[in-house]
C-alpha cells in the first residue's frame, strides 16, 4: 500500500536557503566553465600545433578527463591529494574537479572546431599581410566560436548539473544543501523533487540566454 504522506511545508520554509545554494551552484559552475574554456583552448592548440611533451601532457589531460568518471576526478582532488597530505577546501576540490573535467571535453570540442575551418582561410588571411595572431583572432577564432557555441552551451549545462557531485566531497551547493535539509527533516522525496525543479529552471534560463546571445552575435 502507498502510505507516504507528503509534507511540503518544511521544504518551502527552507526555500530561501535552497535558492541561495543554487547561486553557489551557478557561481562555482560558471567559474569552472570560464577556466575550462581558457584551459580547453590551450589544450586544443597544444594538440593541434604542439609537439613533444606539450602535446603529450595535453593528450593525457584530455584522455583522463573524458574517459574516467567525473566523480573519481573530484575524489582525486579531495581524497587522492588528501592522502598525500595536500588538503583543499571543498570549494577548491569541486572547482578543480569540474575545471579538469570540462577543460578536457572543451579541448576536444575546440580542436574539432579548428579542424572544421578549411586551411585555405588561414592562407587567405596571411596572403593579405595579416600576422599569425591577427589571422587567428580575426579570422579563425570567430568562425570556430560559431561552430563550438552550441556544444559549449551543452557543456555548461552539464557543468551545472555535474556540480551536484560537490555534495559527495562535503560542498554545500544546491544538492549538498538539499541533502542537509533532507536528512534533518526526513522529507527526502519532497526536498529532492523541489531541487530538481530548481535545476530544471536554472538550465532553462541558461539555454534561453544562450539562444538570445547567439541570435545577436552569429548573424550569418
Amino acid at each position: 500500500m502507498f502510505e507516504y504522506n507528503f509534507h511540503w511545508r518544511p521544504v518551502f520554509r527552507s526555500l530561501p536557503d535552497l535558492l541561495e545554494a543554487s547561486l553557489t551552484t551557478l557561481q562555482v559552475a560558471s567559474l569552472a566553465m570560464l577556466l575550462g574554456i581558457i584551459i580547453g583552448f590551450i589544450l586544443a592548440v597544444s594538440r593541434l600545433r604542439g609537439s613533444g611533451s606539450i602535446y603529450w601532457i595535453a593528450t593525457a589531460w584530455v584522455e583522463l578527463a573524458r574517459n574516467t568518471p567525473a566523480l573519481f576526478q573530484l575524489f582525486f582532488f579531495g581524497f587522492g591529494l588528501g592522502a598525500l597530505g595536500i588538503h583543499f577546501s571543498p570549494y577548491v576540490i569541486v572547482l578543480a574537479g569540474l575545471t579538469f573535467n570540462t577543460a578536457g571535453y572543451l579541448g576536444e570540442n575546440f580542436r574539432g572546431g579548428f579542424e572544421a575551418i578549411p586551411s585555405t582561410q588561414l592562407r587567405a588571411a596571411r596572403s593579405l599581410g595579416m600576422n599569425s595572431w591577427q589571422a587567428y583572432t580575426r579570422i579563425l577564432i570567430p568562425q570556430v566560436m560559431r561552430i563550438v557555441y552550441y556544444p559549449m552551451t551543452n557543456q555548461f549545462v552539464w557543468v551545472v548539473l555535474m556540480s551536484s557531485l560537490g555534495m559527495l566531497v562535503g560542498y554545500r551547493e544546491l544538492t549538498g544543501e538539499t541533502q542537509f535539509f533532507a536528512s534533518k527533516t526526513y522529507r527526502i522525496f519532497e526536498y529532492f523533487a523541489v531541487t530538481a525543479v530548481i535545476y530544471y529552471v536554472m538550465v532553462k534560463i541558461i539555454l534561453g540566454l544562450s539562444k538570445l546571445f547567439a541570435s545577436r552575435f552569429f548573424r550569418y
Binding site: T120, Q121, A124, R126, S127, G129, Q143, R146
Partner: peptide, 20 residues
Amino acid sequence: LNRLRQRLGMVFQQWNSFPH
C-alpha cells in the same frame, strides 16, 4: 613577409571569403 605580402595581392581558386 607580412609587409612584403601587402605588395602581392592573391586570389585563390576557392575564393575564401571570410564567412563571418
